[in-house]
Structure formats: C-alpha cells, structure tokens
Amino acid sequence: MSASSSTDLNLTLKIWRQPSAAAAGQFKTYELRGVSPDVSFLEMLDQLNEQLIAKGEEPVAFDHDCREGICGTCGVMINGQAHGPDNETTTCQLHMRRFQNGDLIVIEPWRANAFPVVRDLVVNRSAFDRIIQAGGYVSVNTGGAPDGNAIPVPRHQQEAAMDAAACIGCGACVASCKNASAMLFVSAKVSQMANLPQGLAERSQRVLGMVAQMDKEGFGGCSVTEECEAACPAGIKLTNIALMNREYMRAALTATE
C-alpha cells in the first residue's frame, strides 16, 4: 500500500458476516485506517481483507468480477442504499472520495427471500436466470437468419430497446424495494423485446411466462415506490413497468398462442 497521506480516510465498517446459507449471521465492526480517497469501494474492501488475512481471520466474502460496472456481479447495501449513494453507479464504480474521514459505513448483502445469502455479502440470484428461461428470448435457432438489414428497426425504437436492454441483472432493484419486487428487472427484458419487431411473435407468451415465474420465485408485487429506479445503476426507467403491465393485460385478454 502507498504511504499514507493527509487525505487518507480512517473508517469504521460495520459488516454483515454469515459463514454459510444455513448459519446465523451478525454484524461485525472493523476499523480500517489509511484508505486513499482514490480507491474504489471494492478496493477498500480488498484492503480490509488483506488486513484480516494477515491476522489469520477469514476475509469478507463479496461478489465482484469486471469492476467496470457492466457484469452486474457486485452489489451490496451501503448505509441502507443499494450500491451506495451515487446515481447510476455500481458498488465497484463507487469511489472512496465520496466518503469522509471518520465515517461509519454499514455494509449488508441484498436482502430478499428470493436471493438467499450464500456467505457474508454474497447472495444467490439464480432466480433471475429462471425468469429468463421462462421466456426472455427470441426463439430462433442458429443458422438461417435473414440478412440483418432485412428487418429495419426505426432508430427511436432501437434506442428504446437498448435503453431497456442495458439492465445488468445485479438485483439492486429487488434489494431496494420494500416488497422485494423484481418488476424492474422483468419489465426491462419484456420492454426490450416489445420494442423490436423480432420480439413480437412471442410477445404474449413471453410476458405471461416471465411474470408467472417471477411470482413463483417469491418476489413481491410492485407498489410503485420508485426505489428501484433510484437504485438502478444502469438507468432502467420505471416506464418499463408501465409498459409491461400493458403487455400483460393485452396478453391476458387476447392471447391465443
């Protein structure tokens, strides 16, 4: 580590520790000194873990991979906010310059029945995979696709599809919602496909299947508190939920597939 400088932070960290899914968890408090304001939140945790390992203690488990805000692997509650205080920013992209010397930071895993804790700050989000399996795709096999330009997609529609497709599947929407609803996640996929001509053939089946699976996984309903939109690091908009509700109504009333 670099020699400590006057701008370095000394922090108190209150972190959820839980050895396994079956074990009981509890908060533990750690003092961490000399954190550069230029490091990312996860690099701060790396620093804590190096300190714990040196003492022979088990490091804090947390999920991460790309550390660029795109893979959706990271994500913890930071002082009660999913991914922490910055707008449209994942935990890995949050930097410590956002904090003050002497701060107390409370760090917890996503809390939702559908996301059981694996260890410490790591949760199991495989429910999202099962929702996609229930219809989050276009049924085309490899080979035989028509020329890419054979299906023109008006630019505003493509842009709308891309806005929704930007979801990184991190689960912050679920974690921030008091009902642990997955509506923002599900609606992003529904809305991507509903905006594209390729998605139309399976339009009804898709929304019915995905919503049914969402309910089956134990996610809660949406009561439009808008916390999900505020927490989303990928800027997914609440309007997707409105669109999905329309798609759902349409499908429920008219589906013949």
Partner: peptide
C-alpha cells in the same frame, strides 16, 4: 456476416441509422 444476421434475429439492439438500417 452470419453472426450479425443471427444476433439481429435474436433481438440484439445494434445501433441503427434513422432509416432503420444497421
């Protein structure tokens, strides 16, 4: 060339021109 066709068919939202072409 086949890759682009395949991905478009899957619903990959590639950037488009105003006229709707890739």
């Amino acid at each position: 060339r086949n890759i682009i066709d395949q991905c478009v068919a899957q619903g990959v939202p590639f950037a488009r021109e105003y006229g709707g072409s890739l």
